[in-house]
Simulated assay, not measured.
Amino acid sequence: MATQKKCYFFFLSLFLLGGCSISPITGSYRHKASKQPSFSLLSARPSAFIGQNVLLGGVIQRCMNHEGESLMLIIQKPLDPTTDKPIVQSPSKGKFYLWYKGKVDPKVYSTGKTITVAGKIVSPFKTSIESPHYLIVEGEEFFLWPKESLPSYTQKVPTKTILENVWEPVGFEPWTTGWGEGWW
């Protein structure tokens, strides 16, 4: 009986721990960025936070490759606290750059796609951007969210008046049920 309780507790703890990891970003990066300042403060004084671990997200505005490096301009959006997915409907507090030491495909990381980024704030002089006014994050881990499908609006549009729909509902077609001509 004791081993049965131990097994039950073990599987229960695995289930609970597994339920906590719904973010595509690993727990170590989430923990490193847990005490990050607000995006408004980060973007106002980026040089004061060089080396700070951050977890940011948004919508890609532009993606460029140059000499084995990639640079993405991202419109910041706040992240959902449980999934780390950017909330696209929320207002933006600004823009930031994702700098990656490697090439990404600009067709895959195209304009309008949603992305979550984990990394460190770096000096603009390490990159090809030479302005100290931009927040630049060196991407250590990032996740491109799949496009969500929109609901289908291709249903039959009623062409009858409301009173006609009461007596004969939209989609009621007796000839398709076998009650066509001569059924009586």
Rank of each mutant, 00 (worst) to 15 (best):
V104E: 06
L16H: 13
F96Q: 00
V88R: 07
I87E: 09
S47E: 15
Y134V: 04
E67Y: 00
P78K: 02
P37Q: 10
I25Q: 02
V88I: 11
I25V: 11
T82L: 15
P78Q: 04
K35R: 10
S43H: 13
D84K: 01
L17G: 01
S47V: 14
F49T: 13
V88H: 01
V122G: 09
Q89W: 04
F142S: 04
E67A: 08
L55K: 01
I115Y: 01
N53I: 03
G51Q: 08
V137P: 02
P81R: 07
H66L: 14
R30D: 07
G18R: 06
S123C: 12
G27A: 12
V88S: 07
H133W: 06
I75D: 01
G68R: 05
L55Y: 06
S70G: 03
Y109N: 00
G139L: 03
P81D: 10
I22Q: 10
V122N: 11
I25N: 05
K103S: 14
T111L: 09
E138V: 05
A48E: 13
L71Q: 08
M72S: 13
I87C: 03
S47N: 12
W99L: 04
G68I: 07
S21A: 13
A48K: 12
Q76H: 15
L16E: 14
L14M: 15
K32E: 13
K126A: 04
S131T: 14
S110M: 00
N53G: 02
R45S: 06
K95D: 01
L71W: 09
T127A: 07
A118S: 10
R45G: 04
D84F: 02
V137I: 11
L12S: 15
S23L: 14
V122W: 12
T114S: 11
I136C: 08
I60N: 13
G19K: 11
Y134F: 14
I136F: 08
T111Q: 13
T83G: 03
S40G: 05
S128K: 14
K103T: 13
M72A: 14
I121W: 04
T127C: 08
C20W: 09
V117F: 08
F9A: 15
E141F: 05
F39S: 04
Q76E: 15
L135P: 03
R62D: 15
L56P: 03
S110G: 07
K95E: 05
G27P: 00
I74K: 00
V54T: 10
T82Y: 14
L12D: 13
S123W: 12
F125S: 11
G94I: 01
G68H: 09
C20M: 15
G68Y: 07
F10A: 11
P124W: 06
P86G: 03
P106A: 02
K103C: 08
T111P: 00
K101H: 04
L55C: 02
K95I: 00
T116Q: 02
S90P: 02
P81C: 06
S28N: 07
R30P: 01
V137C: 05
L16D: 08
S40W: 03
K113M: 10
S123M: 10
A33K: 01
Q89P: 00
M64R: 15
S23Y: 12
G51W: 09
E130C: 05
K77E: 03
